[in-house]
């Protein structure tokens, strides 16, 4: 059985990607399970989806802990300490990732020994990482890596994209994008079954004082430990030469990401900024610009 684990962000079309891959495999005659992992995470937040593909009936359920192929839609996910998809791979897992980095740079930056396939979607559209079409491109790259015929991808896309009410023109454009991505991804790594067994003995739980064992949080305000700043590929940069210290950016920030320096200039906490860009839109003197995160 081939386990494909897809990692992206809410709003990038990762669920659609898993459905396109699942349907393509289904059309090829395989047994398939696909599943988005719904959680409390929101638009921009890291999310995942799974596809299991097998020639035999699938005797598995739930999340994938032994991915054959780990698909990463957005390399900013690798910056996150809490939700890093590289934490979830096994030795022989093939990693397929959308990044502008080269294979060797990526391997050395993250000390990765796994088989790697990189593709750079920014070539098609520099802002694709904040669009739902990203999922379509990721699905095409995944199907190519899994050596599925493009005709299956095309049939699957027509079925899935009409299912989410895309019109004919949008579907044709999506297929065109998918074909270009499909052709761009160089294949060379074989995706194989990875064993899922990990031994862990049974823990005998003892009674704990209810002060401990009641679900409450006494470390109030501790969510700061959890950086959300990697939710967006973009971040605001302030031109302090022209900033009038009017505080509008501070006032309208939903995430408490602004503070002030000793001279009263606004300062962005990039670990807290989710990149909603309200500050840029509302800035009355237009001194805030958005910059792609990994270029800063």
């Amino acid at each position: 059985m081939i386990n494909v684990s897809l990692h992206g962000r809410g709003g990038q079309g990762i669920k659609t990607a898993s459905h396109i891959i699942g349907t393509a495999a289904f059309l090829s005659g395989s047994y398939v399970q696909d599943q988005p992992l719904y959680g409390a995470e929101r638009r921009g937040a890291p999310i995942s989806a799974y596809v299991r593909i097998s020639r035999q009936p699938i005797l598995e359920r739930g999340t994938i802990e032994n991915p054959s192929l780990q698909v990463i839609s957005d390399d900013s996910l690798l910056e996150s300490a809490a939700d890093n998809p590289l934490e979830k791979i096994r030795e022989s897992t093939v990693v397929l990732i959308n990044t502008s980095l080269t294979k060797s740079d990526l391997a050395s930056k993250y000390s990765l020994k796994n088989p790697l396939i990189v593709f750079d979607l920014a070539k098609f559209d520099p802002e694709i990482i904040s669009r739902p079409t990203l999922g379509i491109a990721v699905a095409a790259a995944t199907c190519r890596t899994l050596e599925m015929d493009f005709d299956l991808v095309r049939q699957s896309m027509i079925k899935e994209l009409s299912g989410i009410h895309l019109d004919k023109d949008d579907i044709a454009m999506s297929i065109d994008l998918a074909k270009r991505v499909y052709d761009m991804v160089t294949h060379g790594e074989t995706v194989m079954e990875v064993s899922g067994i990990r031994e862990s003995g049974i823990f005998e739980m003892k009674f704990h004082n209810p002060a401990v064992s009641t679900c409450s949080i006494t470390a109030t305000g501790n969510s700061m430990l959890r950086e959300r700043g990697r939710w967006s590929g973009f971040q605001p940069i302030i031109d302090y030469e022209r900033c009038t210290k009017c505080m509008i950016c501070y006032v309208y920030c939903p995430d408490s990401a602004y503070t002030f320096d000793s001279k009263g200039y606004p300062v962005v906490n990039y670990d807290a900024c989710k990149g909603c860009n309200i500050c840029q839109t509302e800035c009355p003197v237009k001194v805030i610009t958005l910059v792609k995160r990994n270029k800063t």
Partner: peptide, 14 residues
């Protein structure tokens, strides 16, 4: 403080 799971740009959060 920052670090919530709410969507980017949530009006309610503000």
């Amino acid at each position: 403080v920052p670090g919530t799971m709410l969507c980017a740009g949530c009006g309610g959060a503000l």
